[in-house]
Lab assay of single mutants.
Amino acid sequence: DLSGKLIIKAQLGEDIRRIPIHNEDITYDELVLMMQRVFRGKLLSNDEVTIKYKDEDGDLITIFDSSDLSFAIQCSRILKLTLFVNG
């Protein structure tokens, strides 16, 4: 049953990962930690990372904090994230 699940599709460069999320109350910090685990070796804990999501118009919107993240989650059951490393 995928109805209650949130799917995160995260892209870093050419690498795209699909991550099912069971807890929608994820904070921004938890998201960043999850991305560091998912992209281990490509995304380091001291990297400056910018996370953006695609909205319904196809625009890339920056996620700065947990309220941005929860808004993005409300918009779509499949959250398409693009990561930019400013390392």
Rank of each mutant, 00 (worst) to 15 (best):
L60H: 07
G87W: 09
G41W: 06
L31R: 01
D25I: 13
D1M: 06
E30Q: 11
I61C: 14
I21W: 08
S70D: 12
E30A: 10
K9M: 15
T62A: 07
S67A: 13
G41N: 06
G4V: 09
D68G: 12
K80N: 15
L43G: 03
T82A: 08
D57Q: 14
D1V: 03
L44W: 06
N46R: 10
V38L: 13
I7G: 03
D29Q: 10
M34C: 11
A10W: 00
S66W: 01
C75L: 11
N23W: 03
F39C: 01
G41T: 07
K9P: 00
R18V: 13
I16M: 07
F71A: 15
K52L: 05
I63H: 01
R18G: 14
G87Q: 14
F71N: 14
I78R: 07
R37A: 09
D55A: 15
C75N: 15
N86Y: 04
I7A: 04
I78P: 13
L60S: 09
E30W: 08
N86K: 10
S76A: 08
F71G: 14
K42T: 09
L33R: 10
K5F: 09
K42R: 08
T27F: 00
S45E: 12
I26C: 06
G58L: 02
F84L: 08
F71I: 15
I78M: 06
D55W: 02
L31S: 00
E56M: 10
T50Q: 09
I78N: 14
Y53P: 00
M35Y: 01
Y28I: 03
I78G: 10
K9T: 15
E56N: 13
L79R: 10
L81P: 03
F84A: 11
L6V: 11
E14G: 08
L6Q: 03
I51D: 00
G4H: 10
K54F: 09
K42S: 05
A10G: 02
G58E: 05
R17L: 06
L60N: 08
M35N: 00
V32Q: 10
V85S: 05
S45M: 10
L33V: 14
N46H: 09
K5A: 08
T82Q: 15
T62C: 11
Q11Y: 03
D25F: 09
K9I: 15
T62V: 02
I8G: 01
A10N: 01
